[in-house]
Design a protein around this nucleic acid. Structure first.
Lengths: 345, 345
DNA sequence: CTGAAAGCGCTTACAG
DNA sequence: CTGAAAGCGCTTACAG
């Protein structure tokens, strides 16, 4: 492990001043193209990388982005969406950031209490905000730009977000269920105020009135475990006019719904169709596998990083596209009679 | 958002030099306790936090830890362990780091190709290393200390790791299955060279010879999906002397094993017991829920952060305990006839 | 087009 | 016990 070359080493080797090296590297000022080429050659040769601390100290930028997931320290109690969804989001965000020479810092949820401390980040990505999410406030109060993944409905004027096309996505699910023969679709929606859940509810309501369909909407507590969804589904199926399809919005409702269907002797998809609002382990590996919306966390992460970096670079983010909507893909599976044939079937 | 106070502001307000402020803050040099108290008072008042870039530039430390998960960019293809396990690990690591005034940087797996660039980290945590894992090499070549979670079996002399007590954990599973009546326990082990998988295999082998038990060990390909585990289990159950219990090591084998059991008309736990080597969504929400080893990712993360920070602080980590072993907890569930009664049962 | 110099906010010998 | 000063490696006016 050789000691890392500094800008001074590059300057010396290239026979220029450190100013010229800096300018060549950053495209500031005017540099003779030939000189620049020569400098870059040396840079490559020496494997030079600017010291991030030095750069940050001088320029005030750290080239580091913060990621704030809605995952609590006590993870078990809080799997609103499935953790695998967030893991995919985080991994993709890290990759996207790195391809733009940015680092990605994972900020623990406790940061809202402890404060941002001296953590040098240039901006943050807040995932699944509640209305007027305190994580957003925290960053904003420090003058840091924020991009949210899904909207913060408490900040209706904010345009810096990446969101699912919830309306279109939801309609796609409902239309699919209808095409598969469903006439009474029930919705199991989590009792949270997250934008995404609220928007889904709104989309379902619109669809219902447009289609003069029965309104079977059941708010389900986001308790740990699957019991609440199980009970809710069971109540539906034992009711007088039971649904013939269920759209479960949260990952953790999938299993409860499947279990309740079995308990009530419903064949899936014969007697009952089931679809999920987020693709997740529970849906992919359900019994039967459950049709679900792949929200494309990898694209959401990529778009959020791009938006944030664009905002950071441009003066007030003039040319950055915002908001950005990501269309989901409906993964068709056996639970709606539309999956690929099963090897074991 | 007021402009951030600098050490100079603190010094002025406290009526001392910046040297004294720095010393008070870092416990270096000797400072009159009264002076120090006075300084700290001002620090609190002003909400002063040292600028990380400045500190890092001067001291060469960034107070930032890198986390390298074994998750590829194309996540779907690579769920060796379940992603929710890694998400929990990452979240806990972030929290543990922050409580020690460290930041946690999520390093994308591609970093092995792109190189560490100028990313200022003081050390790294590598999760589930393969023998002579290139992620470990990358960091080591840069002179950075590494702590692995689970061992790198290609570096037998390395003591800087946090590992599961795989031998004890495995025996606990096998003993439990035996206590529940199993006489022919099969092992579905992933075809990887990860230390953890290798150690599990070794533990099972020891147990088998100690108990003169039949050796039913099936290496299963780590392909995406559950098909390989399904086929392997089916072959076992259709065989001449089928097992009466199956220990599936990887999260992704859980569902395949359950499905195969159903396909072969085995009641669980009546005809067949199933236990998993890692607690995960698939086990918790299996049908029936599957007894599994909770490896305590939160403790592993905490221990790894502590070890790494200790190594960074102490001269060559003199007083840091290493290695550290984390004992798993066997979560008893219905799949081994030992779970809590099910509400739906 | 190029470079000498100031300075970002700290830490750390060093002198008192 | 305390402080003046050097300097970490950059970027950025500024002068030429």
């Amino acid at each position: 492990m050789a000691i890392r070359p500094t800008i001074r080493d590059v300057a010396k080797a290239a026979g220029v001043s450190i100013t010229t090296v800096s300018h060549s590297l950053n495209g500031k000022g005017r540099v003779d193209p030939a000189t620049r080429a020569q400098v870059m050659q040396v840079v490559r040769q020496l494997g030079y990388r600017a010291n991030r601390n030095a750069r940050g100290l001088r320029s005030g930028r750290s080239d580091t982005l913060g990621l704030l997931l809605p995952v609590r320290a006590d993870v078990q109690a809080d799997e609103a969406l499935s953790l695998d969804f967030y893991m995919q989001l985080a991994t993709s965000a890290a990759a996207a950031a790195f391809s733009r020479e940015q680092a990605l810092m994972l900020l623990p949820p406790t940061i809202v209490q402890t404060g941002l401390r001296g953590f040098g980040i240039d901006g943050g990505i807040v995932v699944d905000p509640a209305p007027r999410d305190p994580r957003v406030s925290l960053l904003t109060e420090h003058g840091l730009p924020v991009v949210t993944i899904e909207r913060d409905l408490g900040r209706p004027d904010d345009r810096w977000y990446v969101a699912s096309e919830t309306d279109a996505n939801t309609r796609q699910v409902l239309d699919h269920l209808t095409a598969q023969g469903a006439e009474r679709i029930a919705l199991l929606v989590p009792e949270t105020d997250w934008g995404w859940a609220t928007e889904t509810l709104g989309a379902v309501d619109s669809w219902i009135s447009e289609h003069s369909a029965p309104r079977l909407i059941v708010p389900v507590a986001m308790q740990p475990g699957e019991e609440s969804a199980f009970q809710a589904t069971r109540r539906l199926l034992d009711g007088r006019q039971p649904p013939d399809a269920i759209f479960v919005v949260a990952a953790r409702f999938v299993r409860g719904a499947l279990r309740a269907a079995a308990a009530c002797s419903r064949q899936i998809p014969g007697d009952l169709l089931i679809a999920a609002g987020v693709d997740c382990v529970q849906a992919r590996e359900g019994d039967p596998p459950v049709t679900a919306l792949d929200l494309h966390p990898e694209r959401q992460a990529e778009a959020a990083v791009e938006m944030l970096v664009g905002r950071l670079d441009g003066p007030d983010g003039g040319e950055v596209e915002a908001p950005v909507y990501v269309r989901a893909t409906l993964r068709l599976r056996a639970s709606t009679g539309a999956g690929t044939p099963r090897a074991s079937a």
